[in-house]
Amino acid sequence: MGRYTKHPFWQSLAVVVVSYALIRWGIAYLPGLVGITSAPVPASVVLQYTAIVLVGVLVWVSDNEERWTRFKEPIHAALVEPDKKVVRMSMMAVVPLLVAFATFNNVRPTISAPASLRSIHPAPPTQITFRGETIVLEGLENPLREPDLEEAAFELGKELYYQNCMPCHGDYLNAGGHYAPGFNPTPLELRGSSTIAQLTESFVFWRIAKGGPGLPREGGPWNSAMPVWEDFLTADEIWAVTLFLYDQAGIAPRTWEEEGIEE
């Protein structure tokens, strides 16, 4: 046993295999532990990270002359020693077969949709025309977020949300509406820290007012099902829904001061 655990070749092999397993499955397992939904690690990332580990291991073994010689021992033995003939032959059969299989998988015709390069939060314009009126978005805050207006705005926003937005964005603002599975891309989840929590209210106003068709090209205006709400709602109504979204989901919008600090 000790012969293997202390040997640089087998040590290196173990490091590479364990790292691969950790990168491939371990990372994806972590978010689940703290209650965040996880996703598989993309193949390209796995490849990159494993390659980095491999390079690191090679640097380590070749850094010391004696270690390098010992590292090569098993490889050399497999290549020349008469009693390793079985190992040698099977490697020479298995490796080319694997390469052939990988090549086949690469060149065979596959059925897949073109990759979508859709950007979820495309850059907003600095100003828009809303029902014929110019609205400057930059620096604009929600006019209804005033102590004496907020409560009524929330109630109005709630009513409008459930009449208009709920079928897609869901009762719980989690994109779980009964129409959501009918659309691709699926409607945006509004709660949580990754969507509107990252945005200013004026951005949200723009996205609601102009909908899918108002997206710039990189936003994929051809398949976003988000309606153009300026056709249905007034500016005040859109501000009220915007206010409702943040309050009901229990998140705060970004303010323009924060944006300023960031720049």
Binding site: M92, P96, A100, V107, R108
Partner: peptide
């Protein structure tokens, strides 16, 4: 060509293996 490419890859890797050994 779908079948050719893996065949070439097989022969090439196999040949390389033989040379190395």
């Amino acid at each position: 060509s779908t079948y050719m490419a893996p065949l070439v890859a097989f022969l090439f890797t196999g040949g390389l293996g033989v040379l190395v050994v």
